[in-house]
Design a protein around this nucleic acid. Structure first.
Lengths: 345, 345
DNA sequence: TTGTAAGCGTTATCAA
DNA sequence: TTGATAACGCTTACAA
């Protein structure tokens, strides 16, 4: 009586299977397959390649990582997937990484807890981390240091000394302010983001510098601090447009696109026309920004390059370099002029 | 003469270090730390916990995975990070996964090559894959089967038989069509996506069903096939608005938001007013959809639930269940009514 | 040029 | 209740 057909459970071919089939030792297989090609006689090489082929062998990332101590993967922490501004950075990082034969593992760190949890889970799986998240998270940095996990900040700086890749926000702000000044504006306001958020601080400082370079002064109340969201923009515009007639700005530069969108909405809600009565400029570009009720003039940063640079810098650190301080991406931002800006009334 | 202070290279504590300090065998440590708490005497337990504490020991994910064959991680393939519609699905997946003590590894698969490459790189690092990407990629599926990697399709079906989590697009389409019919429209057109894209096919079939349910017919040319992008919408609107007077639609239902946006743009470019002259309804919701030149009426799917369901189903498969076919997420879509729809002229 | 053997940090199966 | 031992699949000195 025949045995019932027993299902042979699937097992991935291992390097030992390959060695057996090729009639050599596993270590020889390993050597040949890791490009130590010259250190094997042609016939052996042939035999091994043949065996790999027929068995469909693929190396186990896990085993390899455990043995070499290299994961050949990088983590990439973003604050919010709903913010398409990061897409380009990730795309750049992905390209750079794939050239290094490394994969990018993305994780969304919307709050401190999640950031810390993701870092904990990424330890061991990655060789380093790109931190694009803007949340201040001491716990996470402590963890990174404790785990000795190399990391690079992207589009933000934390304490001085931590390696960071940043774009030329100052140049971007200048582009925006000079554009408004060129149109004839003199009373230009700024809705800035929260104090302590690096990009907000830098853009605000750059705004003040650009204004003074243009010989324009900053009357009290002309710089307003708000959350970096549409409602922050609404709040900011409400304040700025309620300034006394002579102090009321004819143009507003916002810390980012969403804030500018909120500002435009509030201005229109007050019966003003944009840009006729008041102009707006944003920062960063989003899909649909050109299809808004008022297509938004905005600064576009070299995000893809920034992502690329972050990976390069991270790789240097992984390879043992001790880097610190800011690394400015030399590609210049550009101003995308749409319909939210015009000469002052 | 004193030796020069030699820098002791950093080495993570291993389970052996813990065992040594606690004066027990590594296997005991492993047992205790894996919750087999009852199978160890209290004093030993105490000793071990103490040692773990002082050494700051954390298990090595890698070693653990190699030993157990479980990565405690899932891959999540999305087609495009610039499309914020996926953010909610990922968020749901992330929540569900974290309840399973599993991490979600995100990867962007913008084209076939990248999809295949990412899958290759994820093998071994993850226990399974959620494939939300809509690209038809036979190579990738062959690879998945060859690697015996469990996977679940999300928001798409490929061949029948492959396990898929989908939302109730049919109900969503009904919502859209009924809304238009309720406003008084009778000549309703559809700009559909490419044939073979599952969501496009389903939404189109549902459109035709909803129309016939409402006793409305579909004159030739009233369903137009286009790319799922703004330019597809432009092209579609150009065609539909050039139909002879009596056949020209008073309302257009588009396969997704971007297509609807393109349609609105084209209508306005032709001097029509939206929604006065022609109404538009989209599918899926995006940030800024309410700030467009014409705030868009659109269908919002229960994306978060869908992501959650995908992870649950995937986990079942990983645990050995053999699942197949469609799994409809029971949460109903809703219609977000904005200003792109009104009664026909 | 190839093989031997140890090691990467765990877990799992026994036996004690 | 604990310990010894052998995996897991690969790499890498070092020896032959």
């Amino acid at each position: 009586m025949a045995e019932p057909e027993s299902v042979v459970p699937y097992r991935r071919a291992t390097i030992r299977d390959v060695a057996r089939l090729a009639g050599v030792h596993p270590s020889t297989v390993s050597r040949v397959l890791n490009g130590d090609d010259r250190r094997a006689v042609a016939s052996t090489r042939q035999l091994i390649r043949q065996a790999v082929e027929t068995l469909g062998w693929k190396p186990s990332t896990l085993a390899r990582s455990l043995s070499t101590g290299r994961a050949h993967a990088l983590g990439f922490l973003i604050p919010n997937l709903r913010n398409p501004a990061y897409a380009a950075m990730i795309s750049g990082a992905d390209q750079a990484a794939s050239e290094l034969d490394t994969m990018v593992l993305l994780a969304e760190a919307r709050d401190e807890d999640r950031a810390t949890r993701h870092v904990e889970q990424l330890v061991g799986r990655v060789d380093g981390l790109v931190v694009a998240s803007a949340i201040r998270n001491t716990k996470m940095f402590d963890l990174l240091e404790a785990e000795r996990l190399p990391y690079v900040l992207l589009n933000r700086r934390a304490q001085p000394g931590l390696p960071a890749v940043i774009g030329d926000d100052e140049a971007g702000v200048s582009l925006a302010v000079d554009h408004l000044v060129g149109l004839g504006h003199r009373r230009i306001a700024h809705i800035r983001g929260p104090v302590g958020i690096d990009t907000a601080d830098r853009r605000c400082a750059a705004f003040e510098a650009a204004m003074s370079r243009n010989g324009l002064d900053l009357p009290p109340g002309i710089v307003f601090t708000a959350e970096q969201s549409e409602s922050g923009g609404i709040e900011g515009a409400r304040h700025l447009l309620s300034l006394p007639k002579g102090a009321r700005p004819t143009a507003v530069f916002a810390v980012n696109l969403l804030v500018a969108v909120g500002g435009v909405a509030e201005a229109r809600a007050q019966g003003l026309e944009v840009p006729r009565d008041v102009s707006f400029v944003g920062f960063d570009d989003w899909p649909l920004a050109d299809r808004l009720e008022v297509p938004m003039t905005t600064v576009r940063m070299p995000s893809e390059e920034m992502g690329r640079a972050a990976v390069a810098l991270l790789q240097e650190q992984i390879d043992g370099a001790t880097l610190s301080g800011d690394h400015l991406v030399p590609i210049q931002p550009i101003l995308v002029v749409r319909s939210s800006t015009s000469p002052p009334p």
